[in-house]
Amino acid sequence: MRTALVIGTGLIGTSIALALTARGVTVHLQDRDHDQARTAASLGAGTVGPAPGAVDLAVVAVPPARIAEVLGDAQRRGLARGYLDVASVKGGPRRELADRGCDLRTYLGTHPMAGRERSGPTAATADLFEGRPWVLTPTPDTDTEVLNLALELIALCRAVPVVMEADAHDRAVALVSHTPQLLSSLVAARLADADDTAVRLCGQGIRDVTRIAASEPRMWIDILSANPGPVADVLTAVAGDLEETVRALRSLASADDAKRGEGAGGIEDVLRRGNSGRARIPGKHGQTPTAYATVAVLISDRPGELARIFADAGQAGVNIEDVRIEHATGQQAGHVQLMVEPQAADRLTEVLRGRGWAIRA
Rank of each mutant, 00 (worst) to 15 (best):
L182W: 06
R190S: 13
P180T: 07
A194E: 03
C202H: 07
T210L: 12
D208R: 13
L186A: 11
R211P: 08
W220D: 03
A192T: 08
P180Y: 03
I212M: 09
A198K: 07
W220M: 08
V176A: 05
A174D: 00
D193M: 11
S225E: 04
A189M: 08
V163G: 04
D196P: 10
R207N: 10
A214V: 09
T210P: 06
L186Y: 12
S185Q: 08
D222Y: 12
R200N: 07
D196F: 15
N227K: 04
L186D: 02
W220Q: 04
R211C: 14
L183H: 00
D222W: 11
P230W: 00
D222I: 15
A226W: 00
L224D: 01
R200K: 12
L201M: 11
A188S: 07
L201T: 09
P180C: 10
L175K: 01
A168D: 03
A166H: 03
A192P: 03
L201N: 06
D195G: 09
E165V: 14
A213I: 13
L201C: 13
I223M: 04
V176T: 05
V173E: 00
L201S: 08
E216Y: 15
T210S: 08
T179M: 14
S225A: 15
D208V: 15
R218Q: 10
S184R: 00
L224G: 05
Q204I: 14
G229F: 15
G203A: 08
A189S: 09
A188K: 05
A226V: 01
Q204G: 12
A174Q: 00
R190E: 09
A189H: 07
S225Y: 10
S215A: 13
H178I: 05
L201P: 07
E216A: 15
Q181A: 06
D193E: 07
V199C: 11
A198I: 15
P228D: 05
G205P: 06
A213K: 10
C202M: 12
